[in-house]
Every structure is written in C-alpha cells, then in structure tokens.
Write a protein that binds this DNA or RNA. Structure first.
Length: 572
RNA sequence: CGGGGUGUGGCGUAGUUUGGUAGCGCGCUUGGUUUGGGACCAAGAGGUCGGGAGUUCAAAUCUCCCCACCCCGACCA
C-alpha cells in the first residue's frame, strides 16, 4: 500500500475535545474521527488495527473450538420480554419502532438472540458442548460516553456463548475461554492481568475480568505479589481480625463542629486522626434508604453492600432525601438514629473496634465524641463493606496486596441457566429428560482493546504499536522522493517487500523527510525503513525501530530477511 | 440525570468585559526555491461567528429559548 493512495489525515495539534491520551493519539494519527458523542468512524489505519485484533481473536476462538456466526443488531422486543430485560435494561438501550409500531432495539448484548437460536435449533445433549461466537457492533446509550473509544455508544465486541449439558462441561468451557483470552491479549502484545470479578447484573456467580494495565484505567485491582491471587477491588475481600485491646469508654459528648462536613474537616478540627472518625453514609438501595458505617479513612465498597443486601440498584442519597429524614448532610451519624428513623444500619467489621470515635450528631454543626458501638448505637448487620487498600492481606496467602489500575478489555461469566430457563432453551439428557442448557458468556471489547493498547504503549512522539496489531508493520520511504535514484531504490525495495509478504506501507509522498519521520513516529509503525545518503555512498538501507529507537543498516538484499526475523521475534 | 465549562474557515485559537461588520498560526490551492526531524518566498481559496427569537441605526459581542460537545459526579457484561 502507498501513502498517496491512502487516507491518513494526521493532525499536528491536539483537538480540544480529547484529553485522554489514547483518544488524542488516535485522532492525531488519523485513525479515528468522531461523528457524535461516543460514535466514531474508523479511518483506514484504525480499521486495519481493528481487523488485526479481530483476526487474533478469531484464531484463538477457533482454536478453542468456537464457531463463528453473525446475529442481527436489530432485535425484536419480544425476545427481550421473555427474559424481562426489556423493562430492566432501562435508558441505556437504544430503542426504535418499525413502521408498524412494533418495538425493536439495537442490541446492547446478544444473550436473548443466541439463546433463542439455541432453543430453536439444538435439542440433544449429543450436540454439546457448543461454543458460538460473533464479532459485531454493540449499542449502548451510555449516560456519559467518554474517553474516546474507551467508552463509546457504538463499539465492536466479540461475544462467545458456551452451551453445556452440565456443570462440569461449563467448567471446561469456562477454562477454555480463560486460556483463550490469555492467549489473545498476550498475542496483542499487551501487559494484562486476569482478575476475579463481580458478576454484576448479568447474573451468574463466577467471573473474571481481563485488565490491560494502565495508570489511566477506570478500574482498580488488587493482586498478590507472591501467589497468583488477583481481583477487581470491588470484589477483594477485606480480612477482619478483632482488636485485642479495648479502650476505656469515655463519656458521650456533643461538641460543636462548625462547618466541618467531611471526615478530613472533622478530624482536623478536633485534632484527631481520620481513623477515629465513624463515617456514616446514606444510600438509596432499590428505593429504600440505608446507612453504612465505615472507619473515617475507608471507602464504602458499594458492590459489597449491593451483594450483601441482594439488591440490584444502589446510589448515594442526595441532600433532598436526607432532608426528608431531617438529617443534615455532613453531620449524619448512628447515635440516636434508630429512634428517629427505621433505616437499616450496616456496619463494616472494623467499626466494631472503633472506640471513642467521632460521629455526626444528626444536627447541623454538631458531632458526638466518645461514641462507642453497642453502648451508643446499634448496628443491624456487621459485614465486610469497605474497599480494600494496598497492604491489606491477600485472601489466599496473607501477603500484603498491591494495587494497580487497569482497563477492562475482556469479561467472562458463568451464566448457568438464567437465560435458558427464561427462554425455554432445553436439551434432552442421556436419560431423555428435558433440562435447561447451562450457559457461559465471554466478551472482548475489540475497539476498546485498540484504545487500551495506545493507552499502555506510547511516548512523546506518538503511538508505539505492538507488532501484531500495528496498522502496518513497516513503513518505507526515500529521504527525498524527488531524487530519481533514491526514489528508484525505494520503489524497488517496496516491490521486493511486497513480494516477500512484508506488511509494508510505502510513504511515497513528495514531502520533506522531517514531515514523514514525524508522521511515522506519531502513527507508530514498529519499523521504519529509509533510503537515504548511505544508500548512495555505501549501498546501505537504514532501519529504525520505533519501540527502542535503535538504528541499524543493512544491504538492500538483506533487509527483508532481517525485518521478517526481527518482527516475528517481536510478536512472540 | 445533577454540577461546571466550551461552541469563531479542516485543526488550534484572538476578538465578547466596553456593540461599529472577523484576525492570527497550522493545514489547503497555484507558481518558484528547497529536501535527514513538522522548510522558505509570492499569490490565493475558504467563515450562516452552534441554531432560533429579540434589543439596537448597528450584534461574534447584550437578552431569552434551544442544540451540540467536553469535564466532574452518578451510572456501567
């Protein structure tokens, strides 16, 4: 391919709309363009990256026994009514009506369609296991699309669904996918970690996320530097050990704390450590208000609270809702709360040992000091409700955990019979007995993986693509395209490369070398091959590697072999 | 959805406070010179100033309404 035949609109300046690195670089490198919030055009180079990722995914899905098919994007509401998700999914689903007024949606996911297909076509355990997948667009009307391709409203996803006759079969399918995912992300040249995850609203009880390690990632994860434990921080259990020493309980006292609303304010006003503060947060869970107590320096783990209460929806209470209870925001506390309201009080286990603490007095500008559990307030349920932090013990081996940030690019679930039961997807087993098929669901965000790769691998000058997913592995140019001799050698080498099967882009533009070098760095081709003065004087071609900056010279007839060898070693 | 912000040629922006009819850099076109890290000279093209309504002799600038986009939060296989 020649640059003069392509469309590669690179940008010198950073578009004002982008402040995520990957978004900026993908725009500047001429790979993507925004059409609307969260909706993007993939330009030729971006499209090539996506196709390379898809190809790796395809190969690994096939290797694991997956079979590709293609489900429709436009889906009838009827199928979603069968699982009840038409009403549950909410405003995140793009909905539309056809000319007859019938309801449809643009598929945000495809469990309904695949389960429907299965229920129509597969009847016997003898046809199992079955692993069906597709690579297709997904549509989610996110409340707030952001970070460019990272969280779009239209995006490309690979989704595979496993069908097994029993739990053992599901375990095998799940492990196959776990292994396949590890291979996919390794082959994409990414540093990643598979972590235990919360299964969330999709249901199921066993789940892993694949996180690309990047400081800019939205998710936080914990991992053990000694054993193989790793987990989304939402899921990391916090070990609780009852404290040995028990402080002498002081006298409960009301003290004025004017203007001190946050834990830090209160702690510094009273000259105390934040660990001596009892943080009381009101949440609305499935429409009901509850209170969660944690130590002042801790964060409430909302997922743990949600799971403990077996609820589906949780949000922090707003000032209006607090007002209705007559509790001033910033001064909430458990003392006397029972007498005023019927809210459920959850206490993090650590608060059991929080003696002589400071807590809001439920009146404006006042806190209590010397607050003690049992004596001054009662908790309905104690449990693990806080977010784990660096240094908390590993749940497997007790070593201090480390914390990292990551970008979720893959997620695998055991769905079991949630959808098969709802949609009557049953099979006949060996005894001729009808039973719901056991399902698993496995997703990879393809476009997000592209963005994650950039997020993880770039420098001041631009993107540094891993070889396996680079838009082209090699860019070739003459330092002066006007010089007939140099241009002639470049042309010759180009044909030679094409003949040798090298994935090469020939920058044949009549631009000054600086322009072409800058573009090459920005776009991030792994190898840059330049025909310059050394060609005329010594018959040598220059090869520069994007990732290391290393430069070597080779004779014209050696270049192709050198590139092939080095590139293939970089892929593994 | 709550809070904050921004909309001016393709990109980045000045001008808005104090109304007087739009400027700069990059990019683009043509000609010439140039060719190892985003060249130079010359001549050009390109703007309903996000949209609508209003105030005014006069609106990018003031008022009202709407829209889009961005950021924080909430939300999220």
């Amino acid at each position: 391919m020649r640059v003069t035949q392509m469309l590669i609109p690179t940008l010198r300046e950073v578009p004002a709309e982008a402040d995520t690195i990957s978004h900026q670089l993908l725009l500047r490198a001429g790979m993507v363009r925004k059409v609307a919030a969260g909706i993007y055009t993939l330009l030729p180079l971006g499209n090539r990256v996506v196709r390379k990722i898809e190809e790796i995914v395809r190969e690994e899905m096939d290797r694991a026994g997956g079979v590709e098919l293609l489900l429709p994007i436009v889906q009838p509401a009827e199928l979603w009514h069968q699982t009840g998700r038409w009403d549950v999914y909410g405003p995140e689903m793009f909905r539309l009506k056809d000319r007859h007024g019938r309801d449809f949606c643009l598929g945000p996911t495809h469990e309904e369609l695949i389960t429907y297909l299965f229920s129509q076509e597969v009847k016997s355990y003898r046809q199992l296991p079955l692993l069906l997948y597709q690579i297709n667009n997904k549509y989610r009307d996110e409340r707030r699309p952001r970070f460019g391709l990272m969280r779009g409203r239209e995006f490309i996803m690979k989704d595979l669904y496993s069908f097994d006759k029993d739990e053992d079969g599901l375990a095998v399918s799940y492990q196959k996918m776990y292994d396949a995912y590890s291979r996919v992300f390794s082959r994409c040249g990414l540093r990643f970690r598979a972590v235990e995850a919360d299964a969330g609203a999709i249901g199921g009880d066993h789940s892993h996320e694949f996180m690309v390690i990047a400081d800019t990632g939205e998710a936080e994860l914990t991992y053990c530097p000694v054993c193989d434990y790793a987990s989304n921080v939402e899921k990391t259990p916090c070990h609780y050990q009852a404290s040995e020493e028990k402080e002498e309980a002081g006298i409960l006292q009301l003290v004025a704390t004017p203007g001190a609303r946050t834990v830090e304010d209160v702690a510094s006003y009273l000259k105390l450590d934040p660990t001596k503060v009892l943080k009381s947060l009101f949440y609305k869970v499935d429409g009901k208000l509850i209170v969660v107590l944690v130590r002042g320096d801790r964060l409430v783990n909302e997922v743990k609270v949600l799971n403990y209460l077996n609820a589906t929806h949780l949000e922090i209470a707003d000032e209006r809702e607090m007002d209705e209870l007559g509790i001033p925001m910033g001064f909430a506390g458990p003392v006397g709360l029972r007498e005023r309201t019927a809210v459920t009080i959850l206490g993090d286990l650590e608060t059991k040992d929080l003696y002589n603490a400071v807590a809001g007095a439920n009146q404006k500008e006042y806190h209590y000091i010397n607050v003690n559990p049992g004596r001054d307030y009662q908790v309905d349920y104690y449990g693990d409700f806080r977010v784990a932090v660096e240094g908390d013990p590993c749940p497997h081996c007790g070593t201090g955990l480390k914390v990292q940030r990551g970008i979720e690019v893959g997620h695998i679930f055991k769905l079991r019979t949630k959808y098969s039961e709802a949609m009557g997807a049953t099979i006949l087993d060996e005894q001729g007995k009808e039973r719901p098929v056991i399902m698993g669901c496995y997703g990879i965000g393809v476009t997000r993986t592209m963005a994650a790769a950039v997020e993880q691998s770039h420098d001041q000058d631009g993107i540094i693509w891993p070889v396996s997913i680079a838009p082209f592995e090699v860019v070739l140019m003459a330092v002066n395209q006007r010089d007939p001799q140099l241009a002639g050698y470049a042309e010759e080498l180009y044909h030679h490369f094409v003949g040798a099967g090298i994935d090469v882009l020939f920058d044949d533009r009549n631009e000054r070398p600086g322009v072409k070098f800058k573009d090459a760095d920005l776009i991030g081709y792994p190898a840059r091959v330049v025909i310059g003065k050394k060609m005329l004087s010594d018959g040598l071609v220059e090869i520069k590697w994007r990732s290391s900056g290393e430069i070597t010279y080779k004779k014209m007839d050696e270049v192709a072999a050198y590139l092939q060898e080095t590139l293939s070693s970089m892929k593994s």
